[in-house]
């Protein structure tokens, strides 16, 4: 988790309540500041991986209408009952209306443009396949959020979650060789799939915005995944 400790705000007693684990021990007397148009907004996101077969139960626990949750009780109940995996995302601080962003990525150099060459080896032709070019591919988690005070004790919260994963597939592909022949070559390449979810809600101070996102494998046999994203701002 990420948190922000601002010593100057600490001295002035203006630090928002419970800014996270890093401030434990430093903060004991925090309190809610009034929402203003200029103070940075603290945004906290919980991303949970839930067994897809438990979706109905998870939705029942979360309840709520229009993806708005009115208390943290449902989330803690869900954590207790469903034992979800947790994708740790830092808490974020952002100026009103401007996004805070976190990325936790695995960046691979994926082979592209399969090409072939024939080489003499021990008196016989050997066909060699190689990628003429590569591309930079990211997998992992992206999260961006922005919040803007709207009237007294209300704020508009807008967030976007993106998850992308890769499966390395070993296959045979056809490659045209310099002599014009087409031969199949062994090829190892990543296949990508992902999901995106975004939400925009006007929330009261104690409310959070949530969404269920399902990632169904379409190309590979990677397992289906179900995410619950819960976002709140102060």
């Amino acid at each position: 988790m990420l948190s922000v400790c601002s010593q100057n705000f600490l001295k002035r007693g203006k630090l928002t309540k419970t800014l996270g684990i890093l401030c434990i021990g430093l903060l004991t007397l925090g309190f809610h500041p009034a929402l203003t148009a200029t103070e940075p907004v603290w945004i906290q996101a919980d991303v949970l991986g839930i067994d897809p077969s438990q979706e109905a139960l998870a939705r029942r626990i979360m309840g709520g209408a229009r993806g708005i949750q009115t208390s943290a009780d449902a989330l803690s109940k869900l954590k207790q009952q469903l034992n979800p995996t947790v994708i740790l995302l830092p808490d974020l601080e952002a100026a009103p209306g401007r996004p805070a962003v976190v990325k936790d990525l695995r960046r691979c150099i994926a082979p592209a443009e399969p090409t072939g060459v024939i080489r003499k080896e021990a008196g016989r032709d050997v066909a060699i396949c190689y990628p003429a070019s590569t591309s930079l591919e990211d997998t992992g988690t992206w999260f961006a959020a922005a919040a803007k005070p709207k009237g007294t004790n209300k704020m508009t919260l807008e967030w976007s979650f993106r998850y992308r994963r890769a499966d390395w597939v070993e296959t045979e592909i056809d490659v045209t060789f310099p002599d014009g022949s087409v031969r199949s070559c062994p090829w190892r390449t990543p296949v990508f799939e992902g999901c995106v979810s975004s939400s925009r809600h006007t929330l009261k101070e104690s409310e959070s915005s949530f969404a269920f996102v399902r990632l169904k494998p379409s190309v590979t046999d990677m397992p289906e995944r179900l995410f619950l994203i819960v976002v709140r701002a102060e």
Binding site: P40, L92, A94, A100, K103, V126, A127, G140, R183
Partner: peptide, 23 residues
Amino acid sequence: SPRLAANIKLPVFKLRSFRSQTA
């Protein structure tokens, strides 16, 4: 004409990126 893929080692990076705004 046995077919081989070449020995092509490429890195996988771990990228962590955070953007916050504070005062």
